[in-house]
Amino acid sequence: MLLTRMPTAALVVAVGLAAVIQPSVQSQGGSIPRTSWDKKPDLNGIWQTLSTANWDLEDHEGGSSPVIVTGVWGARLPGMSVVEGGKIPYKPEALAKREQNRKNALPGKPGRDVSADPELNCFLPGVPRATYLPHPFQIFQSPNRMWIVYQYSYARREIFMNGKKETPIESWMGWSNARWDGDTLVIDVTGLNGQAWFDRAGNYATEALHVVERYTMIDRDHIMYEATIEDPNVFTRPWKISMPLYRRIERNVQLLQFRCAEYVEEFFYGEFVSPPRD
């Protein structure tokens, strides 16, 4: 039995903040690990954010769980905006859609529902959301090759290091072309299908989304992650989020199984079960 209360939709009006994209983070010049083969920063390792951006990229207060019976297990964790300037520069009509998404995020009844938050359905998180889900991810780096594998569901990305390749088709996790800008890894992400959301608060984009991620090691165990987000269908200008990534340094840390398709089966299909025949 799901007893739901809909989250209070705090209407947020985009004020015309000047589009000041700050100069990107620079490595602090201290000792960062470098690869033996090209002396570029060695991003190999298991990383995770400590942000609560998955709840809401913008400022969000703590709040009670939307499901009464889960008590404080499901409570919303408070966090400050990771958006430069605080607010996402929505076009007015797009902001209305975000508010609609926010209302639909948690339908409060069983069943697969594509108007809900894709995370609720265990759908792939897209970029940049994969980065700040409350799960670790692992970067694999070798000469001219890179993959990022996320613990959540079966999310992963091949990062193309050898020049520009064009996506043949849109996908949830997009198409990632990378280059080095000094000591910063810059990943240009296109081919996103626009079905993923940025967070549980309904922030979204369309298939015109273009994300440029920057991974800058600031010391051995920290990467500053920045993503510039552009979608002329939804936003009045490009905007930027940033947050540090922390190396998971626990002994024997590894990504574990979180095959969430299995965890939504009762939710999706419970109402369709037929009784066994006699």
Binding site: F123, L124, W172, A261
Partner: peptide, 9 residues
């Protein structure tokens, strides 16, 4: 080329 499979989705 390995492409996204997105089975559950």
């Amino acid at each position: 080329q390995i492409y996204e499979y997105a089975c559950h989705e």
